[in-house]
Nucleic acid binder design. Structure first.
Lengths: 207, 207
DNA sequence: AATATAAGCGGGGTAAAGTCCGTTTAGTTG
DNA sequence: CAACTAAACGGACTTTACCCCGCTTATATT
């Protein structure tokens, strides 16, 4: 629980062996997931299969969920680049409504693909809902600020939108997946609903 | 090898001892929460303090989260009555916008009060997001159906609204509560934002 | 190169969730 | 009321996440 807590200003670059092991662990984790699914990634097994001690695994990731968050964030980083400097409508150059709907579409596709990782990433009292969510929020705030709806509390609206996007996804991926609609179709439906919501919200501004 | 094969349709009422123990466990759990917070409610301790075996606890609630869900649902039942047949604006008699905002206000207050139980109720791969959430969805669907926005997929909108209401709450209650705004104020802010969102959504219909 | 030290490492230890299965009992049937 | 059966019970057992802390090593400093 105690974090090292270097007062501040001293990031103290990651040591070479630490970095090597971190990458190693992530690679092995991915490998194990491909084999036996997320459930098969136990801390002991991961440590052993990576040829490291259990303590090391925890030092690197803090918690089991931490591993999955890290996996997710690797991907998220690529995504972020697209959002910040890729081609429209996802990247800059399109209007807020287009960018928001595009964002939703891509994010939904992403989570539907990485369903089990996403699930595993939020199990315990994980606290922070992944830095990744924060990225979504930052982006939403930016877009909302730009589009001038006369909203009282843009910060809260960003959070609500984020929830409206992620919530249904989580609901979907937590429901029995055996008899449910196939992911592709569910994804399409979620994306359409998202577009509907965004357009409806912005319609009031266009009056 | 003879299979019992009760065809179906026979719920087989709860046995008297089972009922007694179920109520007992809930009472003791509440007691323990008042003492040492949600974290102090371990399955072993609960079993012992109730004078029962651990197996019994699991038979009754299936999972640790199950206990907290059960606690929450006890409350939710009272709430449901208010919604279905209480006085306006929460109960019938007011317009959809008023009812939705009232619903949000009360629900937020409820969750802010029961913060730790709510948190504890959603920890593991709990699967079903609590029957309670379903109640919210049923209600939202009803109100959305009544108010005739020309929405393509009312079902999805209900889910999104539910998420927009609950998501920010969860975010709030999972963030460090030591330095954050006091619950009362946070609650007010969430409620205002919720009202804003609902009014904005319905504005397009009122044109 | 020698030294100092913060960071990293390992793996046994603990606690708590959840499973198993043999025993007990409430409720039913003739 | 005696036999019967499905449900409930208990508690030992297993599996994991996560902690602790003495030992090792990379890296900065002189």
């Amino acid at each position: 629980m105690d974090r090292p807590v270097v007062p501040l200003g001293k990031p103290r670059a990651e040591r070479a062996d630490a970095r090597r092991n971190r990458l190693r662990l992530l690679a092995v984790a991915r490998e194990m997931m491909d084999d036996g699914g997320a459930a098969s990634v136990t801390m002991d097994a991961l440590a052993e299969r990576a040829g490291l001690g259990k303590g090391t695994v925890f030092r690197r990731f803090g918690t089991r969920a931490g591993i999955f968050k890290a996996l997710l964030e690797e991907e998220a980083h690529r995504f972020q680049e697209l959002v910040l400097s890729g081609p429209p409508p996802l990247g800059p150059g399109a209007g807020p409504v287009e960018r928001l709907t595009a964002y939703g579409r891509v994010r939904i596709a992403f989570l539907v693909d990485n369903l089990d990782v996403a699930q595993a990433a939020m199990e315990p009292g994980a606290g922070h809902p992944a830095a990744e969510v924060d990225l979504t929020l930052v982006h939403f705030r930016m877009l909302l600020g730009r589009a001038d709806l006369g909203v009282r509390d843009p910060e809260s609206l960003a959070v609500q939108l984020g929830a409206a996007l992620e919530g249904p996804l989580l609901l979907y991926l937590s429901s029995s997946r055996t008899t449910e609609p196939p992911p592709a179709e569910a994804g399409r439906r979620l994306a359409d609903a998202w577009q509907d919501l965004v357009e409806r919200l912005f319609a009031t501004a266009a009056d």
